[in-house]
């Protein structure tokens, strides 16, 4: 009697441990709930992309056929061919790389310098400038949009890449304030004694910046490079406003996303070319192929550098040390 009771208790404990777990290990029940949640939310996150991809490979006949939902009846990539022509893909891709890369490089330099000034030195009005820095992050850029347009026009940099390069060089590019704060965090962690030792060895202010602080701030440089690149790459509105000004479509700088917004308008002229009517009117399949193509370069970049992107938030020191 007593033995069976003990057995029953032991079994109950074991079951409890299996279901609810203990300190070292999750129980089965907890695990099942957690993985179910994570997997279903993960699916929800990926759903738009899967949906987009499945539509992008449908032929016009499949699109109209309500019995075809996810899997096409035949594999065809005509949509992609048409989308490549419409977006003027490789030309646009090269322009997009220029727009994203060159301002990013300048932005790294200017934000590193400003971050260093705040981290290393004590100087008059430091608090004021730091408050101003935070302020530049929270004011919406739209407020200065109109006069900036006029200013660039007067400076003669409207309609060329300079309209992006000049602000990046002056530490006022896209989200520069965030990058300055990241560099500030990194430069601050360099121990004073290291700089002082270098000073005794005869290093000046400039060389201790280049030869001690910058090499130690490599993670911050990576974060700035990646995110600045992505944010410049994804900008549509200001590219249209500042870079597209006064240019025809072919000579102006443009991005894949900007071309995506013009997809409908550029489809017929791009496909027809020689004055023939286009083979098919633009349909969802072709549009989705275009959308797929427009996110493809960054998607590939993300796939390769995924770890650096995801770990950047840890490294940026946003959560404090």
């Amino acid at each position: 009697m007593n033995a069976t009771l003990k057995m029953r208790f032991a079994n109950r404990d074991r079951l409890k441990k299996l279901l609810f777990g203990n300190r070292e290990k999750n129980g089965l029940l907890v695990s099942v709930v957690m993985y179910t949640l994570l997997i279903s939310i993960g699916f929800i996150f990926l759903y738009p992309i899967l949906h987009m991809f499945s539509i992008s490979i449908l032929t016009p006949q499949d699109l109209l056929d309500s019995s075809v939902r996810w899997i096409p009846r035949s594999l065809n990539f005509t949509n992609y061919r048409l989308a490549v022509i419409t977006l003027d893909y490789f030309n646009t891709l090269w322009k997009n790389v220029q727009i994203a890369l060159f301002p990013t490089l300048l932005q790294v330099v200017s934000t590193a310098l400003a971050g260093y000034a705040f981290a290393r030195y004590t100087f008059p009005l430091k608090r004021l400038w730091f408050a101003v820095l935070i302020f530049t992050f929270v004011i919406p850029p739209q407020i200065t949009m109109v006069p900036t347009f006029v200013l660039y026009h007067n400076l003669g940099i409207l309609g060329s890449l300079n309209a992006f390069l000049v602000p990046a060089l002056l530490g006022q590019g896209f989200n520069s304030a965030i990058f300055i704060l990241i560099f500030y965090n990194f430069h601050r962690q360099v121990p004073d004694s290291l700089i002082e030792a270098a000073e005794i060895d005869g290093a000046g202010h400039i060389s201790s910046f280049f030869r001690i602080s910058m090499p130690l701030a490599v993670p911050a440089i990576i974060v700035t490079l990646l995110f600045s690149f992505v944010w410049y790459w994804n900008e549509t509105f200001l590219v249209n406003l500042f870079l597209g000004f006064g240019n025809t479509r072919d000579e102006g700088l443009t991005t894949l996303l900007l071309e995506l917004t013009r997809f409908e308008d550029s489809y017929a002229p791009a496909i027809t070319g020689a004055g023939m009517p286009p083979p098919d009117p633009v349909n969802e399949g072709i549009r989705m192929a275009g959308t797929m193509l427009s996110i493809l370069p960054l998607g590939v970049l993300y796939l390769i550098l995924q770890r650096h992107f995801v770990e950047s938030v840890d490294k940026a020191g946003i959560t404090g040390e």
């Binding site: 400003a114 000034a117 530049t136 060089l169 002056l170 300055i180």
Partner: peptide, 13 residues
Amino acid sequence: FLAPWLIGFFLLV
């Protein structure tokens, strides 16, 4: 070190 950012702030902000 702060100069580029300061010029940028005065001119562009």
